[in-house]
Design a binder for these strands. Sequence first.
DNA 1: TATAATGTTTGAAC
DNA 2: AGTTCAAACATTAT
Length: 242
Amino acid sequence: MPEGPSVVILKEAVQQFKKRKIISVIGNSKISQERLLNRKITDFKSWGKHFLICFREFNVRIHFLMWGSYTVNETKDRPPRLGLKFKNGEINFYSCSIKIIEGDLNRIYDFTADVMSDIWDPSKAKEKLYANPERQVCDALMEQDVFAGVGNIIKNEVLYRIHVHPESLIKGIPDNKINELIDEARNYSFDFLRWKKKFELRKHWLAHRQKICGRCNIPFMRKQTGTKSRRSFYCANCQVLY
DNA sequence: TATAATGTTTGAAC
DNA sequence: AGTTCAAACATTAT
């Protein structure tokens, strides 16, 4: 369930529990369950891939890592890591990482770095990119401090869209391409959101897990790239190595 | 059935 | 002391 747009979908799915009191807490997470019991949720927020349940004096951070999932008003056939019940329904979180964050979220998170945020700031992203000119673009795009919410699917699709080879160094990429990179990181994320809501995300993949380049009609490269060593799918012909 | 994969943190090893 | 790297976490589609 990982990338940023999926967390936005979750946030929308739980709006019915905003301002509601938790009447039961279950789960095998290490966090204190009694801390949540009888507390009212003030808001749900997200920062990149982080889902945040806000209370008056603290927050619960949920990270789904690679295989985490959730259900709303349903259960799976195994105990949740955290399950919250309300008078009007329930949310269950499975195989995720859960942490309490004390105090004000703005002290921890820079929401202008979240590609899905209303206050996303592309100029700050650009500064952060140029602060590490030797970095490969495939690593830079996945850097959560720069592009919070971007994961491997978005990385592959963005680089294909803008015809840039994943192993290009930031310092070699022309300035107007850097602008395109930043714009598409956000654009594609919103396309991802729209398609995922219609359960047709995969249908629109042009690079991720694809075998043939639709533009050149030749086989895609598939390689672990960058220091993060994540899979890149790219066309060695039409994606330029800068 | 075995494998690989939308991710991150931790702590050991160098 | 700073960097690198494997392990751990745990699910599901292919």
